[in-house]
């Protein structure tokens, strides 16, 4: 019971989801050629994941650095920002993250995964995890069809990932620099905000262990 860090479990689930989400966004928004993507299965639905080692490493390193902050509930949001050729933001996918109030109550359910059993033989933890998986699946599906409601981006776009912290970013700088050759810097104001943005809500996930 004491060995399991619950924040770590939530961060693992969330970072795994964010990894899939980033790949899907890059595929759907055609940031990279579709030839580098392969169909895989995640959360029981088909997803498109890059098979380009350098890009995959970049995404993994980014999320690996963010994870310690998520564990400590210090991330307010993670943003996948699509930038045009001149590096101006043209589109943002914003993942707002908060810890639901029931988190501490639910601790025991995950620590003792097979107890307590309900009458139909399904443990609370099974149904909890199944519920989380359903939410993650629904969110990935929403991302997979979001191009239907978005305009095309200009050619030659690239992307970056922004991490909005709850406290001033300076306080979290050391915590996020967990990979030696993958330094982080403060984002400039013009990189964070867009002029006259239009907001399109995609999906809200609320479960006992995470809210996005």
């Amino acid at each position: 019971r004491q060995d399991l860090n619950f924040g770590q479990v939530v961060a693992d689930v969330l970072c795994e989801f964010l990894e899939v989400a980033v790949h899907m966004i890059l595929y759907v928004r055609e940031v990279y050629p579709i030839g580098i993507f392969q169909k895989r299965k995640k959360y029981n639905v088909p997803v498109q994941m890059s098979c380009h080692p350098e890009l995959n490493q970049y995404i993994q390193d980014t999320l690996h650095c963010i994870k310690p902050l998520i564990e400590k509930n210090e991330v307010d949001r993670v943003v996948v920002m699509i930038l045009d050729k001149e590096h101006h933001p043209v589109e943002r996918f914003v993942f707002e993250i908060s810890q639901p109030p029931l988190l501490s109550v639910r601790l025991n359910v995950l620590v003792f995964p097979k107890l307590p059993f309900t009458l139909d033989g399904v443990s609370d933890s099974d149904s909890l995890l199944s519920h989380v998986e359903q939410l993650l699946r629904a969110s990935i599906l929403k991302i997979s069809v979001c191009d239907a409601i978005l305009e095309s981006n200009p050619p030659g776009c690239t992307f970056t990932v922004l991490v909005h912290t709850r406290d001033a970013a300076t306080r979290n700088m050391e915590k996020i620099q967990v990979i030696k050759d993958f330094p982080w810097i403060h984002a400039d104001e013009q990189e964070v905000n867009m002029r006259e943005p239009r907001l399109i809500p995609l999906k809200t996930m609320t479960s006992d262990i995470l809210k996005v």
Binding site: T62, C65, V161
Partner: peptide
């Protein structure tokens, strides 16, 4: 959605591989 200022935002110093770099790698293969 714009309520967070730049003072609260971090980003990786390095950029991901560009589309051109990736296309070049594909052509190499």
């Amino acid at each position: 959605i714009n309520r967070t200022s730049g003072a609260h935002v971090l980003k990786p110093l390095m950029s991901p591989p560009s589309r051109e770099e990736i296309v070049a790698t594909l052509l190499d293969h």
